[in-house]
Design a protein around this nucleic acid. Sequence first.
RNA 1: GCCGCGUUCGUCUAGGGGUUAGGACGCCGGCCUUUCACGCCGGUAACACGGGUUCAAAUCCCGUACGCGGUACCA
Length: 501
Amino acid sequence: MDNIGRRDHSQNVDSISIRVRFAPSPTGYLHIGGLRTALYCYLFARSQGGSLILRIEDTDRSRLVADAENDIVESLQWCGIEVDESPHKGGQYAPYRQSERQSLYLQYAKSLVDAGHAYYAFDPPEAIENLRKDHATYGIQTRHQMDNSLTMSEDLVNHRLESKQDYVIRLFVPENRTVSFDDRIKGKIEVESMMIDDQVLTKSDGMPTYHLANVVDDYLMGMTHVIRGDEWIPSTPKHILLYEAFGWEPPEMAHLPLILSPTGGKLSKRSANRQGIPLNVLDYRTLGYEPQAVVNFLAMLGWNPGTDQEVFDLVELEQQFSIDRVGSAPAQFDLKKLQWFNAQHLRRLNTNALIDKVRPPLTEQGVHLPDDDYLKQVCDLVRDRLEHVHDLGLHYRYCFEDPEEFDPVGIKKRWKPDSATLVEQYSDLIEGMDEFDEQTLEAGLRDLAQKHDIGAGRIIHPVRLAVSGTTAGPSLFALLKVLGQTTCVRRLRHAALQIES
RNA sequence: GCCGCGUUCGUCUAGGGGUUAGGACGCCGGCCUUUCACGCCGGUAACACGGGUUCAAAUCCCGUACGCGGUACCA
């Protein structure tokens, strides 16, 4: 017992530093709620100068999803959440996959039996099913009616164990105890031990249950804080009892409120789908969201800095995060707000970063990529009206290709009988320009308008329509400048002919 | 059923015995402007309900309702 996986207390620098784990079960891809838990774990660890450990809790072999672990790792990476120790990275307390630590749990469970805090139970499933018809728990009132090492002779118990009959080890939950703990987010929580089952610690397949593995690993791996979802609150008293049985000091607990669907219910696969909310983290990548925006959005769902700042990058979050400012009420997912965050982060990108972001979706949209210099000009031209990386190819395709169609509503509204003539005259003007810049373009157009004794808008609107096919867009003269002299002339002349017919 | 957690504008939230209950998203209006955005200015809208305690309650206490979670050899 003393020589297995003992926590190393000798390095006191280590033992005072904060250690937090994110401990997902690889039964599916990492979803947005799981990511928020990971994020808060990360932010807390980083803000305290501590470490984040990724531990894979794969004790349920029947629900295991083969590539879930990879998905989890990739999701965290995409968001910039770095872990200090993990199955892939290794670390002082390896292995970090619970399936690889099986023998450890068994030994600890047996030590609990030896100390009288746990017992062997041989009841077949039907017996337990029967029990639950009349009693809520397998515990204080019922354990003495069952087949276990509390009710059977030692010889018989040994015989059963030796003949490899199925058995589980159950925790002996004490009577009349008020189990309490002080949650960093929820405050003091109390539960009567009466309400708690004699928890199964090791399953008949030899695997530990979540409760055992979790407690043993959190202890062995030196966790100082357990930060996890709300749904674990009812289990925490069981864990506290386990820590007590082992004679260990429990870590600090912090239970995060859940993320709800926009209608208030549970954010399930079905509800998310119906609301158009991507559920898996990597779906957000596929859809072209900025990881920083997703992180920012999630951080603000349940936490606030106490100031008016709301746009944060990860580093700022690390600096400002405080678990004391995490709210205790669940929060509803709001896609509109995420989109706003996305726009904020996208626009803050410098031009070089922006063109990198924008190239893949453009390619996907079948746009022939121009050279970087041109792409930069386009990005700077439209960046303030970009909400999403896809918007460039979606709404500003004319920056890359001559428009093939002209908005009929726009034509009706802006194309007058004299428009074709004016557009052609302006194209002549442009063709003859030595200086091709915004000022010259504007001055030339206004001159032309004056000559015809009309408002500048009479030319501006048809020109925009001719050059872009649409009535909305960036400043016309800036647009013309970016498009370039020959493109402008070509488009204007072509449009004058086509719209006329 | 039982146990636990929660409840401030539609949404995210600040505040936490005496506030015109503040901000953000969304929505609406205005300004800017050649358009559409951006930006700026303004508007809309909230303390779940009922009892206490108190000079005073959104804030503290107790109930009720509603929501969510747990009650597994799932995590």
